[in-house]
C-alpha cells in the first residue's frame, strides 16, 4: 500500500512538472524541470518491481542509468548548448502561457478519457493518463515554442511520457533493449545540441520560425 501511494506521489510530481514546463518563460527553468521529471521517472520501475527485488543487477542498473542520463547528462548537454550558442533565454512561445497551461489540464482529461477506453491490467490507475498527458505536453511544446532548444526539451518530455508508460508494461523487458533506447535518446540529444550550436553560429539566432528557406510554396 505504501508503495502504491509513493507511485501516486511520483505521478503527481510528473503532472506538476508538465504544468511548469508549459508555464515557464525561461529556458534554464525548463531544462531543470525536464531533468527533474526524468529523475522522478527513473524511480518508477523500482516501485513497480513486485516484492522489491532490489538485489538483482537488472532491477538496479536501469534506474541508475536512467537517472544519470536524464538527470545529469541531458541538462549538462543542454546547458552547454545554451552557453555556447548564446541562445536567448526566453522560450519565445507561439501560444501564450495561459492557453498553454489550459492545454496541460486538457491533456490530462484526454489522457484519462483514452485510459478509460484502454484499460491496462495491473499498475496504478493513474499511470496511463499521466503518461499520455506527459507525451501530449511534449508534442505541444515542440509545436508551440520557437526556440530550437525548447523543442529539444519538448522531445525529452515526450520521451519521458513514453518511458513512464514503458516502465509499467515492460516489467521484464530485456536490459539490452532498455539500454539501447537510452543510448539512442542520448545520442539524439547530443546531435541535436551540436545542430543547435551550428544553427546559432550560421544564423545568429535559434528561432525555428526563421528556418524557412526550404518550402514548395509561399503563402
Amino acid at each position: 500500500m505504501m508503495l502504491h501511494s509513493l507511485t501516486s506521489l511520483l505521478l503527481v510530481f510528473l503532472v506538476l512538472a508538465n504544468l511548469r514546463l508549459l508555464g515557464a518563460s525561461r529556458l534554464n527553468v525548463c531544462i531543470r524541470t525536464v531533468a527533474a521529471q526524468g529523475v522522478a521517472l527513473s524511480l518508477l520501475p523500482l516501485l513497480n518491481a513486485s516484492g522489491l527485488s532490489l538485489t538483482s543487477f537488472h532491477a538496479l542498473a536501469l534506474p541508475t542509468a536512467t537517472a544519470l542520463v536524464k538527470g545529469a547528462l541531458f541538462p549538462w548537454l543542454l546547458f552547454r548548448a545554451l552557453r555556447e550558442a548564446h541562445v536567448q533565454r526566453e522560450v519565445e512561445p507561439y501560444v501564450g502561457f495561459t492557453p498553454s497551461l489550459l492545454f496541460g489540464v486538457g491533456s490530462l482529461a484526454v489522457g484519462g478519457h483514452l485510459a478509460a477506453r484502454l484499460p491496462l491490467p495491473g499498475g496504478s490507475p493513474l499511470l496511463v493518463p499521466v503518461a499520455l498527458a506527459t507525451m501530449l505536453t511534449g508534442l505541444f511544446l515542440i509545436i508551440a515554442r520557437r526556440q530550437a532548444l525548447m523543442q529539444v526539451v519538448g522531445y525529452l518530455a515526450l520521451e519521458n511520457g513514453i518511458f513512464a508508460f514503458g516502465a509499467s508494461v515492460m516489467k521484464e523487458a530485456p536490459l539490452l533493449v532498455e539500454m539501447g533506447i537510452l543510448l539512442d535518446v542520448f545520442v539524439a540529444v547530443f546531435i541535436m545540441g551540436i545542430t543547435v550550436f551550428h544553427i546559432s553560429r550560421e544564423f545568429e539566432h535559434t528561432d525555428t520560425e526563421r528556418l524557412s528557406a526550404l518550402k514548395d510554396w509561399s503563402p
Binding site: L139, I142, A148, Q151, Y155, L158, A188, I191, M192, T195, H198, I199, E202, F203, T208, L211, S212, A213, L214
Partner: peptide
Amino acid sequence: RTPRSLEATWKYLLICSV
C-alpha cells in the same frame, strides 16, 4: 554545412525522432 542543409538536418532530426 550550408544554412539550407542545416535547416534540412534540423527538420530531419526533429521530425523523424518524434
